[in-house]
Simulated scan of single mutants.
Amino acid sequence: MVSLPEELRVREIAARQRVEELQVGVAELELRLEEARESLSRLEITRETVAQVLAELSAPQGEQDVPVRDAAESIETSAPHGIGAMTVPPWRDGLVVAVLPDVYRDMVEVVADAPGPLQAKQIVPRIGLPATTGKIEGTRAKLKRLVERGWLDEDTPGRFTLARRGPGRDRFNP
């Protein structure tokens, strides 16, 4: 039979080991938290820089000095996934297709060159992707994003055209 003082000593040793293990875990978590904060800081700076560059690229000549805060606000959105910068900015007068990411720019150019409305399945091979269901659905989602942001119109469901007020109508249709 084990004596009560001996049992308490064994439990005390076990509890002390558990405390030491938890302290090591806390130290590791503090290190990971600091790394995550540093990464967040770099991402915030990158987002602000990208916003400023996009604003400068899309600003009419003579308006190149856009404050960083204004540039960031012009591109930010409250996205449900928590990311604060848009890769596809909303279209507005003076904004050129060149500010779009490559794949979005390609889609707008394909739609602009078409004689009429196009479906996603028609656009996919023209931008160099295989005509698989996944690529078609991904492209459709991107096309709808372009509609939401004013670059394209979708008058008939699933059929996309250049926005009537849109991006460089004069550039694509003289």
Rank of each mutant, 00 (worst) to 15 (best):
T156S: 15
G138M: 08
T156A: 13
P157L: 11
T156W: 13
A163Y: 09
D153G: 04
W151K: 06
G138A: 05
L146N: 02
E148H: 15
L146I: 02
L146A: 01
G150V: 03
K142Q: 14
P157W: 02
K144A: 13
W151G: 05
G150I: 03
A141I: 11
K144L: 14
E154W: 09
D153T: 06
K142S: 09
R165Q: 15
G138C: 04
F160P: 06
G166P: 00
P157I: 07
W151Y: 14
T139R: 00
T161H: 13
D153R: 11
D153W: 10
E154F: 10
G166V: 05
R165W: 15
E137R: 15
L152T: 03
G138E: 07
P157F: 06
R159V: 06
T139A: 02
G150L: 02
R159H: 07
K142A: 12
L143G: 02
L162H: 00
L143K: 10
T161M: 10
W151H: 04
K144N: 15
A141P: 13
D153N: 14
D153H: 05
A163V: 03
P157G: 14
L162V: 05
W151E: 01
T156M: 12
R164C: 15
T156V: 13
R149C: 01
R159C: 08
E154P: 10
V147E: 01
W151R: 05
A141N: 12
G138V: 01
E154I: 04
L143A: 03
T156Y: 10
E148C: 15
G166W: 00
K144Q: 13
E148G: 13
R165M: 15
E154R: 03
K144I: 08
E148T: 11
T139W: 00
R145S: 09
T139D: 00
G166Q: 05
G166D: 02
D155N: 12
G166E: 01
K144R: 12
L152F: 07
R149P: 00
V147N: 08
F160S: 06
R165E: 14
R159A: 11
L146P: 08
T161C: 12
D153C: 06
E137G: 14
R165K: 14
L162S: 04
G158W: 03
R145N: 10
W151I: 00
E154T: 10
L152S: 04
F160L: 10
E148I: 05
R145H: 12
R149V: 03
L146F: 02
K142N: 14
R145W: 11
R164V: 15
A163G: 11
G150D: 01
L143S: 01
R164A: 10
